[in-house]
Nucleic acid binder design. Structure first.
Length: 563
RNA sequence: GCGCCUGUAGCUCAAGUGGACAGAGCGCCGGACUUCGAAUCCGUCGGUUGCGAGUUCGAGUCUCGCCAGGCGCGCCA
């Protein structure tokens, strides 16, 4: 159990005890929250419960605080409880208890940081899901870093997590891409084939066209045009997906499932779901198209599910993205039975959120099971100039290039350091020049430093065996232990609020506290009189190594032994 | 015009549910290596939380109105 929950429990017990002793009037016990005070002088933990209870208890907050403090039961973890104005109860943790937590961390090992959830859930996190029509952009990198870190945190919280990439391989997507690829392929064969006006301009398509021409000769040129476009499109998409999977793997991002949008139609699922909406009288046929009657559910306008034949002739290209989304949410929550579906979307899709949630509700699904996490855009600067990015025009810095320039660990770290709600304005020149000052190296350095200490100790024959952690009483040692104990809280915070940015901030803080400890406390001493303390401190730094490594791993960042 | 996000130290950003004197890093300036990694540490300076009202014991946080920036608002994907 997290110490903060334990303390909250003590506060509740104290409230009840104070009421029994007639020190407080009877009132229903509220939910009690314990929080970290901003200043060290206010102890390790504090609760503002007295301030909130003043009205119900009809007493001055400070008096309530005093009553609570007087009735807190004795506890091995708590050294001191005080009431302070205007109405806080402050807790100071026991040094001995803190020191003992080093053993707890060592015993937990690589699993330290795990938290037992209130309820075990089967959760799907769907992320990246970039159109398979070209290389991944830096924006997709942000999506990947956010989604993967969230998935890691949810797993640490004990949930069963499935990581999914939704492949937009349906409809006119494949044709558009195929037409561009076909043109480049034909041109590579020396044919006079015009490039489509709205085609994908990137140089990568030219290269792919040349590769197909080299590999298959004029095989596709001789078959019926529409068939060639379709087949080239599908092959090209498969190829792009393989390349993108490799890019993501460089960032330590891997998926359990690459889910095909097309399969939603081929399995007949969309037809079934459309019928369910019809049964709810939420489907309207007008202007030759099929509409979702979103206005019936309070939205501003209706939305097309299936386009009219006048707009697009081919039947399999007529369903819209919304059509897929509606079938997909049903697939997630009903067909595959996930308790919760988490989507990570770029902010440009925020207008789609209400429609998907409305559709889920219309299908009788609890919209609380769906979380759509939006992240703002990444803008890149080079030489002070904003690098404009568009997959259509083929002008962009690819995620691969960014990884090449900055390094995978720094990329992952920097893409989750800021809250998803904030745009990232990233200057490539600065990142490359100051890469040594990148916070990720600060954190990794702490880990490598510990590895080096342990190596040094091993060379001298010093071990932690039989180390007595009760010798850990130096303020810097206790500060380090306090910091390590925060990891489970951070995991819980990240996973419940879907805010991965707390993790890198915590990592920086933990590393800083370790570095400070290192400066103040020598771990491996050559003085035989210090042998016992050396053993205890070796335990402490082993624990610190475990916590740093886990923190980095949760972010998909390596924890190097040397650097 | 409407909707969503953002505005906090010179710069980049934090700040669980409304809590105590709003915190870090970078940069600037000044210190610290004859035993474990100086990619480090210690210290100084730095604020009308975009502006103005409101709600209440208390607001960076909630409400309303302005200002500025980003993103949306198609039978596009």
């Amino acid at each position: 159990m997290l110490i903060k929950n334990h303390l909250a429990e003590l506060v509740k017990q104290a409230l009840a005890a104070a009421q029994n002793a007639n020190a407080l009037a009877a009132f229903p016990l509220p939910e009690v929250f314990v929080e970290r005070p901003q200043k060290k002088e206010w102890g390790d933990w504090a609760t503002a419960a007295p301030l909130k209870l003043a009205r119900a208890a009809k007493r001055a907050p400070l008096q309530i605080a005093q009553a609570i403090a007087a009735h807190i039961p004795p506890d091995e973890a708590v050294a001191q409880v005080t009431a302070s104005a205007p109405g806080f109860v402050n807790f100071v943790l026991s040094d001995a208890w803190l020191a003992r937590q080093v053993e707890t961390i060592l015993a937990a090992g690589a699993r330290f940081g795990d938290v037992t959830p209130a309820r075990h859930l089967k959760i799907q996190v769907e992320y990246v899901s970039a159109n398979p029509t070209g290389p991944l952009t830096v924006g997709s990198g942000r999506n990947a870093a956010i989604g993967d870190t969230l998935a890691n945190a949810l797993e640490a919280l004990g949930h069963t997590v499935q990581r999914e990439y939704y492949v937009n391989d349906a409809g006119s997507q494949v044709r558009h891409f195929g037409e561009s690829l076909f043109a480049r392929y034909a041109q590579a064969l020396g044919k006079d084939e015009p490039f489509p006006a709205d085609g994908y301009q990137g140089a990568y398509i030219v290269a792919m066209g040349q590769e197909f021409a080299r590999q298959y000769g004029d095989q596709y040129w001789r078959m019926p045009r529409a068939q060639a476009i379709r087949e080239l499109g599908r092959q090209g998409i498969a190829q792009v997906l393989r390349a993108n999977a490799a890019t993501l793997a460089r960032l330590n991002v891997r998926f359990d499932e690459w889910f095909s949008e097309r399969s939603l139609y081929e399995s007949g699922l969309f037809a079934q779901v459309l019928q369910k909406l019809r049964d709810q009288r939420l489907v309207i046929e007008k202007e030759d198209a099929v509409w979702f009657a979103a206005t019936e559910l309070g939205l501003a306008q209706d939305a097309v599910l299936v386009r009219s034949p006048q707009v697009i002739a081919e039947a399999d290209e007529r369903p819209t993205y919304l059509a897929s989304d509606v079938a997909y949410v049903w697939n997630k929550l009903v067909v595959r039975g996930f308790d919760r579906a988490i989507y990570v979307w770029g902010a440009d899709h925020h207008g789609d959120v209400p429609r998907v949630l409305a559709a889920a509700r219309a299908l009788g699904l609890d919209p609380a099971r769906v979380s759509i996490l939006l992240y703002q855009f990444v803008t890149l600067r080079r030489g002070g100039q904003v690098v404009r990015m568009s997959k259509r025009t083929g002008e962009f810095v690819t995620l691969d290039e960014l990884i090449e320039e900055v390094g995978p660990d720094a990329v992952r770290f920097m893409l989750i350091t800021q809250s998803a709600n904030a745009t990232i304005d990233f200057d490539l020149d600065v990142a490359v020049e100051h890469s040594d000052e990148n916070p990720v190296y600060y954190v990794q350095y702490a880990h490598a430093r510990i590895a080096s200490i342990l190596k040094h100790a091993a060379e001298l024959g010093a071990t932690s065996a039989g180390g007595d952690v009760s010798l850990l009483t130096h303020p810097a040692e206790l500060e380090l232990i306090r910091a390590m104990l925060r990891l489970p809280e951070i995991v819980e915070l990240v996973a419940t609020k879907l805010e991965p940015h707390h993790l890198p901030h915590y990592a920086i803080e933990l590393a800083g506290i370790f570095h400070s400890f290192y400066k103040q406390c020598r771990v491996v001493s050559s003085d035989p009189a210090d042998a016992a303390l050396t053993r205890a401190r070796l335990k402490l730094v082993q624990a610190a190594k475990i916590v740093l490594a886990r923190t980095l791993n949760l972010m998909g960042v390596r924890a190097p032994e040397a650097m």
